[in-house]
Each structure stands twice: as C-alpha cells, then as structure tokens.
Amino acid sequence: MTGKSSGGQFTGKHMAIVLVVGFGIVAAVNLFMASLATGGFHGVVVENSYVASQKFNTWLDEAEKSRALGWDVAASRDADGHVLLETSAIPAGALATAELRRPLGAHEFASLTFTSLGDGRYRSSEKVDAGRWTMRLRIEAGSDVWAGERELR
C-alpha cells in the first residue's frame, strides 16, 4: 500500500529554520546574562586572595562594631563636585575620611578628607570627578571607629 502521510515533509529548509531560531535564542540569553553580570559587578579585585581570606573574619568583626555604634551616613555630591555627608548620631568633633574607587572600567582612585559644617554635616576638601564611585568611609570619634561603604553617583 502506498499512501501519502497526513503531515507535511520535514525538509532541509525546516532544519535550517530550527537551527537559526535555536542558536538565536541561545545567543540572546547569553547576551542578556552577560549584560546583567557586567552591570551588577561591584566586587573588588585583590592582589592576593588567600591573604584577603585570612582577614575576612577581622573585617566582619569591624563591621559588627560599626553597626553597634548606631551611626548612619548618607553621601551625595554638590554642584561644585564636593562630597557631602549627612550623618546621624555621630559625636561632635568626629574625623571623617574616605577612599574612592571606580567600580568598573578604568582603575581610578581618590582620597578625601572632610570638614565639619556642623549639625552632623561634612563636606570634602577635595572635588570628585563626575561619574560612579564606590566610597569607603571611615569616621573616628575618640576610640570609636565607624567604617562603611556607600555608592556615589
């Protein structure tokens, strides 16, 4: 018995379409995931990861001590390019410093010192170039030390 099948034939043209669509989906997903990975990376590259791992628990202890102080800091930039800090619960006369680095792209660094404006506000003595920065703050008041990281845009 000879007869025609009820469905159409699967030709080379169909196979080409399946391959193009399949690889197109894979490429689209890969591009999407790569853009998420590069857009969200905020890590720090260290010179020696083993040495950094040995300091990790010390860094956790310092972070816990900072949280226990109850101090809070918000950072922004004024029109002149200086960094402004708005603090709460920090004793008068505290000294503030910061180390800045670019989170992505060119390895650019800056150091800041701050002058108190009163009422828990501080202004950097140095101007900061426009763009995105990661800022590591350190505030000292007597024997109390607060350390934290803020993003500056």
Rank of each mutant, 00 (worst) to 15 (best):
V18L: 15
R121L: 08
L117W: 01
L152W: 04
A52D: 14
D80L: 08
A74G: 04
V26R: 05
A106L: 09
H82F: 11
D78N: 15
V73Y: 03
M135Y: 02
Q54C: 06
T58R: 12
R101W: 03
D119Y: 02
H42G: 13
G70I: 05
E47N: 14
G40I: 00
D119V: 01
S66Q: 07
G22F: 07
E62N: 10
A96W: 02
G70T: 07
M15N: 13
R67S: 13
D80H: 03
V128C: 06
G81W: 02
F109M: 10
V18H: 09
A75N: 02
V83S: 04
N48D: 15
T38W: 07
N30W: 08
G24D: 08
R132I: 08
S116N: 12
F10C: 11
G120I: 02
T87D: 08
D129V: 00
R102F: 01
R77L: 08
P103D: 07
G8A: 14
E47P: 01
G70K: 09
P91D: 05
I90M: 11
K55H: 10
D119K: 12
V20S: 13
L95W: 00
T97N: 12
T38R: 13
A74C: 00
I17Q: 15
M33Q: 14
A34K: 11
F114N: 07
P91A: 05
G12D: 13
A130L: 06
G93N: 08
A37W: 03
I17W: 11
G22Q: 06
Y50R: 14
E126H: 03
P91V: 02
F10N: 13
S76K: 12
F109S: 08
G120E: 05
S124Y: 03
A27M: 05
V46H: 11
V44P: 00
